[in-house]
């Protein structure tokens, strides 16, 4: 996979996703059409159960639409095999979860290293790539601690480190500040926006109005459909910090 092919451009056409909950069918995604260009900063908001997370999972190739097309990096991912999607996830997508999802028995460094291990990158190259990321995240002194020895903000920074270590062009964040206090939440948001400023496509799913309104482009979902898609002129970096 050459660097030139790595792009976070997204094209979604007529995507539906239904879940069976008991005898009731939930239409979690209802005819989603979406175009995202590389480097955009998008927030997805909406009430609980509106399909925000399903959309994020689908965009992150964790979930597969029942119908429709999802084009990522110039290819329709819907007909792909699970194995091929795994490769796409590894090379194109970075995840940041509300509950961090760090492997408890691995140190901060080992957690961040994990995607490179799975990609089969040699240890020397892994060390070379890790050093600047650890430094940038301010985790130099904490790199050998286990997640349980880290604060929530530090854990989320480890998770971000893990999301960006493969230089994925698309960063998907599901309530990235949901478990954090205001101060560490602001830190994490700042870090994500910095990455976006460097050209990474950033999509944040959130309940938090203040966080949602920092994005230039704001999607609003209700009952599995995108009801509004507005782009604002103000760049988030010109606004005061949270």
């Amino acid at each position: 996979m050459t660097e030139a092919m790595k792009t976070g451009a997204i094209k979604v056409r007529g995507v539906h996703r239904r879940f069976q909950l008991g005898d009731q069918t939930v239409h979690a995604l209802n005819d989603i059409n979406l175009d995202i260009t590389q480097g955009e900063y998008i927030s997805v908001m909406g009430p609980s159960g509106s399909g925000k997370s399903t959309l994020l999972n689908m965009l992150g190739l964790l979930d597969v639409p029942d119908e429709g097309e999802y084009w990522l990096a110039g290819e329709d991912t819907v007909p792909m095999s699970e194995e091929a999607r795994a490769g796409y996830r590894r090379d194109h997508i970075g995840f940041v979860f509300q509950s961090y999802h760090l492997v408890p028995r691995l140190s901060a460094r080992e957690n961040m290293e994990l995607p490179m291990v799975l990609a089969g990158i040699p240890p020397a190259e892994r060390r070379k790539r890790l050093a600047p990321v650890i430094q940038r995240l301010g985790l130099t002194e904490r790199a050998d601690h286990k997640p349980e020895q880290l604060s929530g903000g530090q854990r989320q920074r480890v998770a971000i480190g893990r999301a960006i270590i493969m230089q994925a062009p698309l960063l998907l964040a599901d309530e990235p500040t949901g478990n954090l206090d205001t101060h560490s939440g602001a830190d994490v948001v700042e870090l994500l926006e910095e990455l976006n400023a460097q050209g990474v496509t950033l999509m944040v799913v959130t309940h938090d109005m203040a966080l949602g309104q920092r994005a230039k482009r704001r999607l609003r979902m209700v009952d599995g459909a995108i009801v509004s898609d507005d782009t604002f002129a103000i760049s988030s970096s010109e606004e005061p910090a949270l």
Binding site: G60, L62, E82, E83, A86, G87, R89, R90, D91, F95, H101, V103, L114, P115, L118, A119, R162, M166
Partner: peptide
């Protein structure tokens, strides 16, 4: 959760 994570990070089912 860890299995899901490994897969999210790019591990294939086979791995």
């Amino acid at each position: 959760a860890e299995i899901g994570l490994l897969k999210a990070l790019g591990a294939s089912s086979k791995e």
